[in-house]
């Protein structure tokens, strides 16, 4: 499932990034167990069992990694995670926009913030070309989303100026 995995190429495998998940699992398991230490045994036993197996598996993985690096079959490089390097700026900007989308949607409302996110993200990914087309497409998608999710499916999405202005009009058009 991994794209551009350099492990298929000749030479030592870059396996530094492979350690992120096991290390995160170890940290999380230790944290989880620290939160159940004072509890009754019923609330502990299952977590101790599964957590114990997970720590054991991670330990085997760490030993395997250590042996591979020591024998020169692998390196501690993080290439697998960051490749292709040319995509890093776009990936970082998209991540920033996604984060901003989540932060701003409760304040700006679904329709306006979705429009802004779609337009900016598409412009960034297409190197700021076809601006008019992207603005139109983003507008159509945001309005379409509003009609589908809020008007038809009646979901309580975060409301902003657009919804405050349009909802009463839509309600009156649909007969209350």
């Amino acid at each position: 499932m991994a794209e551009n995995n350099p492990s298929d190429e000749a030479g030592p495998k870059p396996i530094g990034a492979d350690l992120i998940i096991p290390v995160a699992a170890i940290i999380f398991t230790i944290y989880y167990i620290s939160t159940i230490l004072d509890m009754k045994w019923e609330a502990q036993v299952s977590a101790f069992l599964v957590g114990g197996i997970l720590l054991f598996l991670c330990a085997i993985f760490l030993i395997r990694t250590f042996l591979e690096v020591r024998s020169g079959k692998a390196t501690m490089s993080f290439e697998a995670l960051i490749n292709p390097i040319s995509a890093i700026p776009k990936r970082a900007m998209l991540f920033g926009l996604t984060f901003l989308y989540i932060v701003l949607v409760p304040y700006g409302g679904f329709t306006i913030v979705t429009f802004a996110f779609l337009a900016l993200a598409m412009l960034v990914l297409s190197d700021w070309q076809k601006k008019r087309f992207i603005l139109m497409l983003s507008g159509l998608l945001a309005i379409g989303g509003y009609i589908l999710f809020i008007v038809i499916f009646k979901r309580r999405f975060p409301e902003g100026p657009f919804e405050t202005f349009v909802n009463p009009i839509v309600k009156s058009m649909l007969g209350g």
Partner: peptide
């Protein structure tokens, strides 16, 4: 297989987050 098992058991631990069913005490939240 080892990576698969680590991923699965990591998922199980994440699935354990929340209040326990008997005492409703929060764990790993």
């Amino acid at each position: 297989t080892l990576k698969g098992l680590i991923a699965g058991f990591f998922g199980l631990m994440i699935g354990y987050i929340g209040a326990d069913v008997i005492y409703e005490t929060p764990r790993g939240t």
